[in-house]
């Protein structure tokens, strides 16, 4: 656990943890607002957005990709809202229709365009490339203090750190309006809170987290982290403040445990190759949810009236 760890495992681990936390934080509110599928929808529509951005600019550099993905996320949110209102169907169904057809369109576009020269394919979109985000110039823990080595950190790490920090800070500042409008939108309106703006901003936050995480860890983790850690956290407590802390703890645990198990688990079992870290992280988060469903203290919330 020395130089090799810092060089090969430290940055993927950190990126995995930051991505998991950035998605789990807004996930808490999305689930309470019965909008859990929004995260799912956004992480799927990122693919067509990126492909379109590639077709227009001809490169896979960061900014065109981020813009394309964000643009697609906004288009998806508008389309979902339009289908819901015009078609008068259930929001869940509207989301399902939107993200599956946009994702499928993205796959078709990808197949039809010449992406042989760049690292852009469906597999990448699903699993990301967490294992490849290594820190080549690191020579040990000392590199953390070496400006030359630090300059060579994978850009995904800084991007993910910035997004995770931004989302945490926004959540702390706007905690009260967010909680109030999630619990009781009518009352929030009546005290003068712009509930439509809050609701839209939350979706945008989720979109930013999804887009930033997508590139590094792929959409499987994004979908899992929006839902599994907050859902498991809800079963641990009856207070939103504590639920959010639990969701962060579960997100970190999934990322670390998933990364380690993906790298070493198959070897322990006698297998030859490591498995996808993204897949394993998502699996671990699912297992955590299953365990909390069975053993967590507040899993049996009946809400039964206790008489008067």
């Amino acid at each position: 656990m020395g130089a090799e760890f810092v060089q090969l495992s430290l940055t993927p681990l950190l990126i995995g943890v930051l991505a998991a936390v950035a998605c789990a934080l807004p996930g808490n509110f999305l689930i309470l607002r019965r909008q859990a599928l929004v995260g799912d929808a956004i992480s799927h529509v990122v693919l067509p957005g990126i492909v379109v951005a590639f077709l227009i600019t001809g490169t896979v550099s960061t900014w065109p990709m981020l813009l394309g993905a964000s643009g697609a996320a906004v288009v998806a949110v508008v389309v979902i809202e339009a289908i819901r209102r015009v078609g008068r169907i259930d929001p869940g169904a509207a989301m399902g229709v939107t993200f599956t057809s946009l994702f499928a369109a993205g796959v078709l576009l990808l197949e039809q365009s010449d992406t042989s020269g760049v690292h852009l394919d469906v597999e990448h979109a699903l699993y990301g490339n967490l294992e490849s985000l290594i820190w080549l110039s690191a020579e040990g823990w000392g590199s953390l203090l070496d400006p030359v080595a630090l300059a060579d950190l994978p850009p995904e790490l800084l991007r993910m750190a910035a997004v995770a920090l931004l989302i945490s800070v926004l959540m702390i500042i706007f905690w009260r309006p967010l909680k109030l409008s999630t619990f009781d939108e009518g009352f929030a309106n009546a005290v003068g809170l712009p509930t439509a703006v809050i609701s839209f901003s939350l979706v945008i936050c989720a979109a930013v987290a999804a887009v930033a995480a997508f590139d590094a860890v792929g959409s499987i983790i994004v979908i899992a982290m929006f839902i599994c850690p907050p859902a498991a956290a809800r079963l641990m407590t009856n207070r939103l403040e504590i639920q959010v802390l639990w969701s962060v703890a579960f997100a970190v645990l999934s990322a670390v445990l998933g990364y380690v198990l993906a790298g070493y688990g198959p070897l322990w079992l006698g297998g030859a190759n490591a498995v996808s870290a993204a897949g394993m992280i998502a699996t671990v988060s699912g297992v955590i949810l299953a365990i909390t469903c069975l053993f967590a203290p507040h899993r049996a919330r009946t809400g039964t009236p206790k008489g008067n």
Partner: peptide, 22 residues
């Protein structure tokens, strides 16, 4: 949704939003 993870006193404190602000 009364299954919302919060306590009675927290709901009443929401009435003080104008006083407490962000």
């Amino acid at each position: 949704d009364w299954d919302f993870p919060t306590r009675v006193i927290d709901v009443v404190l929401m009435g003080l939003y104008r006083e407490l602000g962000l």
